[in-house]
Simulated assay, not measured.
Amino acid sequence: MTPAAERQRARFAALDPLLPPPPPLPPGEPLEAGGATGTITHVRFAAGSWQRLWSPAHLQILSAVLPLDAVAGMSALLSAWRERIALADAEPDSSCTVTWPSRDVAVSRALLDHGLAPQLALAVRAPAAGEAHSVPGVTVRESTRGDLEEIVGLRFEELRYTSLVGHGVVRPGAKALLAEEVRRGLQFGGRVWIAEEEGLTVGMVTGGKRSPIPGDALAGRLPPGEWGYVGTLAVTAAARGRGIGRALTAVVHDELFSPSLRGTFVSYNPANPLSPVFWHRQGYRPLWTTWAAAPAAALR
């Protein structure tokens, strides 16, 4: 580990004890400025793919190791990134992203000054069973194959809502892609619980367990060990505000809890007027924030 990387590791540990040691910079285009070093990784998602429902077609992802003056280093790196983008043709269906510790508010200022906005938060909760919560007339149960249509309908409504306040994109064939993803998730161990009222599905939540392994999306984001996750939570518009989301989440926490669990995590959009306050009330707090400027030409 280089002295700069070791310094950043110590800085992260002081910011938040749950931050794991940062991994080495991933392969990509090298970028250096103001004593900071970084790489830019290009990710392209194929037309018609599931990922394009939740992302632009082209992502430029900046990973960075900052100097002692982290704010100046990030600012210099973003300016150099902007100049590089200006020399190329910016694609309209694209975005520039940086994922950084949520508690590093000093560096957050530099990100804001360069036109990036918080797009996604990875939040964590201490390992604990859920506090039982019931709603009169509403039952929560694990889904069956017969619930597929209702689950996909709720997932589609959640996508439409997310497209208004965050990173969701309602593309052609979205419902078919959602249906296939639900089937695949259930096939490979994902679980879905639904809330019913008078025979009608009024809410759903997905969940499961994961362990960070080298090379996956959680590597360098969560400490090693077994983690529970809460995936998509959706409640019909007419049923919101009655505690159904809380009841669903409590069931997931109970089902996932075990003495060996490190905790649970969830991702939400900070700009969503419903998600942040809800998840914070369930005991979650942000660990990482993904900042984005879209399209790529918006970076300043």
Rank of each mutant, 00 (worst) to 15 (best):
F188P: 01
S143E: 06
P21M: 08
G190I: 01
V277W: 09
E157F: 06
P21Q: 07
G241Y: 03
R281H: 14
G166P: 03
H280S: 10
L59R: 14
A195C: 07
G207K: 01
G228D: 02
R109I: 10
P24E: 07
L19F: 07
S94W: 02
R109V: 13
K209N: 09
W50L: 15
A174L: 09
P22A: 06
V169Y: 06
A237M: 00
L77T: 04
F188K: 12
A13M: 06
V43P: 00
G241H: 08
S134I: 11
L274T: 15
T2N: 15
P22L: 07
G168P: 04
E255S: 13
V277C: 01
R246E: 07
G228I: 02
Q282R: 13
G173N: 12
A296L: 10
P295H: 08
G189I: 07
G203S: 05
L77N: 04
V165L: 08
P270Q: 08
R300T: 12
G231S: 01
R191F: 03
L200Q: 14
A179W: 00
I85F: 07
A64C: 08
A129P: 12
V182E: 11
S134L: 13
R9S: 12
E149M: 07
T264W: 02
P67W: 04
D113H: 13
E196W: 02
A72I: 00
T37R: 15
L15T: 05
G220N: 02
